[in-house]
Design a protein around this nucleic acid. Structure first.
Lengths: 200, 200
DNA sequence: GACACATGTTGACAGTGTCTACTTTGGAAA
DNA sequence: TTTCCAAAGTAGACACTGTCAACATGTGTC
């Protein structure tokens, strides 16, 4: 599939790339260092020269995923005013989760390696969260005055959007068996409710 | 730990019980049929007489977890009026996620077996969701008139509460490194925002 | 040229899920 | 009571996984 027998420094990058490809097509649970090595045409131990353990390659892949996610959010069409712009961001968030459900599950699916042990992964995740904070700050200048007010509002917005994305990409259609019309309206309805929730 | 050498019909029940115990203490990822068998003092193949595969025992455990979750929600202190009662439910939801984080991650962590293949698991999950719908119907009788209106509001509420629980139990304190004061206020602040979001 | 170090290879080990074949056992039918 | 059979449990094997250790190879520096 990819170029055979990748060597040298490229191998580290190639492992991340191939690992992300595996996750995007088959999910995190079927990521294996041996399979990565096999696809790259190297021995099963070669990746270990670049990553301490499976968790370390996973952390690198997650960091990469957060980078792409943040870039996608940042490249959204800009709204006419702060309020509209925040809604654009919500739509972009949900669109990304729908377009790359397995990658989304990778980032928020709770089988990540211990964050404390992988600071680079944490940094990329925090950056994605900061984009939301920034968009929100433009909408709610008042909240920024209170101690932690902005964080609290951001947490509300993120919890709601993340929760909806999580439900739509993992359970809803399947486990909850909600009618199609509800699923179609879900995004718009929820974003409107978020707007009301932010009012003071 | 448990009674040695469980036999006969009890073994099925014992497997679910022991499996849930393993998940509660070590997480889903370290659940193994062989470990379950070992703890129960039977051969590594004995559980397979009661469950077709690892996914089938996992589905049974998830169903059990949803039962307990629903029972906990149903046993909440009842609020004075519908609106206050819905808030009680939100608090109960978040309290459960905090008390049993690994069990919560089991139910909503996205590494479940295919729901379509495990109808009993689906049924238990839907029942938990229906409790929320019922509490919400008392608050929003108007929404029940519109086609799917109740489902949409329920989806908003659930997404928000689930999202917050998911963030608090998996990433927040760790990956996002939010200040303690924010975490303490998060529940009350978010529940208040949900209330505003439901207004018409 | 000799040495060191990074990179890659090979082989082994314990752990897992699952397949197949064997033994045991408890209860119904004769 | 004896017979028989299906359910329940056991034992061994297989392929797969992550990881450890020892070995090979090459590249760049003293």
């Amino acid at each position: 599939m990819t170029e055979r027998t990748v060597r040298n420094k490229d191998l580290r990058e190639a492992c991340i790339h191939e690992g992300l490809a595996i996750i995007e097509s088959d999910g995190v649970e079927s990521l294996s260092l041996r399979e990565v090595a096999r696809r790259l045409g190297v021995s099963h131990q070669a990746p270990y020269k670049h990553f301490q353990s499976r968790d370390h390659i996973l952390a690198a892949i997650v960091a990469r995923a957060f980078e792409r996610f943040a870039a996608y959010l940042d490249a959204r069409p800009r709204g006419a005013n702060p309020r509209e712009d925040l809604a654009e961001m919500g739509r972009a968030y949900l669109a990304y989760a729908e377009a790359y459900p397995l990658q989304y599950r990778l980032m928020f699916g709770a089988l990540l390696p211990d964050p404390a042990a992988h600071p680079e992964m944490m940094a990329k995740a925090q950056h994605a969260f900061s984009l939301l904070r920034d968009a929100l700050e433009a909408v709610q200048p008042a909240a920024a005055q209170e101690e932690g007010g902005l964080d609290l509002d951001a947490l509300f917005v993120w919890a709601t959007v993340h929760g909806l994305a999580s439900i739509l990409t993992t359970c809803a259609g399947q486990t909850l068996a909600l009618p199609q019309s509800v699923l179609e309206q879900a995004c718009a309805h929820t974003l409107a409710a978020i707007g009301r929730g932010l009012e003071r």
